[in-house]
Simulated scan of single mutants.
Amino acid sequence: MVRCQVVLLLLLSPILAFAQQNLFNIPSGDITPKSKVFYQHQINLYTSRFESKGHFVYGLGNGWDAGVNVVGKGVYFRPNWQLMHNDQRAQGPLYPVVMGTLQKQLVLGEKVNLNLGTQVGTNFSSVAERRTVHQFTYGLLGYTLKPGKRLLAGTYVTNSAYVGPGNNLGLLLGYEWKLNDRWYLMGDWVSGRHDQAAGVAGVMYWPAKRVQFCGGLLLANPNVPKPNGIVLEINILGWNAGH
């Protein structure tokens, strides 16, 4: 039954797929415009597995957006091929997970905004007692140096069901740096000593007004279980954002 649920999630991800909700691993500080949709799909490649994450967002207006995240899908291909699944707390974070999202942006000045958001959901398991609440809540301050050049800094609080053993409170840092109309430098960092604690440095490319391609090198924080890897993303916007 569990395998059927995971396969269903893998099949549904492209179907759900419809401004940048995340940089790589932290929120981007953007808000989806009212009545518009945004979809981001991310693949993390490691030496023994790949992970798949999908983020669907709908703009509510007045600085609000809401959505659904499906994270922790994937496949191990070493030593044997098998779908990723964990519902045992002793073995680290529980996955795959479906989470509802809600975010509010406060404009504090011409160059400064504050985003407050939360993601809350549960993992998939055929055993009811092994399903538990996951949450990731954050505050993120964005400062625009000039159009296309922005710095982000904030804090988060989460729980061990989502990130595994380690700290549940930490820092978020990120940047976007426009090189020209189509290319940006982009990176972020999640502090801590848990499964999600890592930094990513990479680039973003605009092939069209509604599509962004992103790629980067993922470097895990010291003394955490996550290995180093490569991150690939596609973002699909429901409006013409331009370059």
Rank of each mutant, 00 (worst) to 15 (best):
V7L: 12
L8I: 05
L8G: 14
L9S: 09
L9N: 10
L9W: 01
L10P: 04
L10T: 03
L11T: 09
L12Q: 10
L12R: 01
L12E: 11
L12G: 15
S13R: 05
S13P: 01
P14W: 02
P14Q: 05
P14T: 07
I15C: 13
I15W: 13
I15G: 11
I15F: 14
I15P: 07
L16T: 07
L16G: 11
A17D: 12
A19N: 10
A19G: 14
A19I: 04
Q20I: 02
Q21T: 10
N22L: 08
N22T: 11
L23H: 05
F24P: 10
F24V: 13
F24G: 12
N25H: 10
I26Y: 05
P27E: 09
S28R: 03
S28W: 02
G29N: 07
D30P: 00
I31W: 02
I31K: 01
T32N: 06
T32S: 03
T32R: 07
P33W: 00
P33T: 03
P33Y: 00
S35P: 00
K36F: 00
K36H: 08
K36P: 04
K36E: 15
K36A: 10
V37L: 08
V37F: 04
V37W: 05
F38K: 06
F38G: 11
Y39S: 15
Y39Q: 13
Y39N: 15
Y39L: 11
Q40E: 14
Q40Y: 10
Q42K: 11
Q42W: 01
I43T: 15
I43C: 06
I43P: 02
N44S: 15
N44P: 01
N44M: 05
L45P: 02
Y46S: 13
Y46R: 05
Y46Q: 08
S48E: 11
R49W: 03
R49V: 00
R49I: 01
R49M: 08
F50Q: 04
F50T: 00
E51M: 09
E51W: 00
E51Y: 03
K53N: 14
K53W: 12
G54H: 07
G54M: 13
G54A: 09
G54F: 05
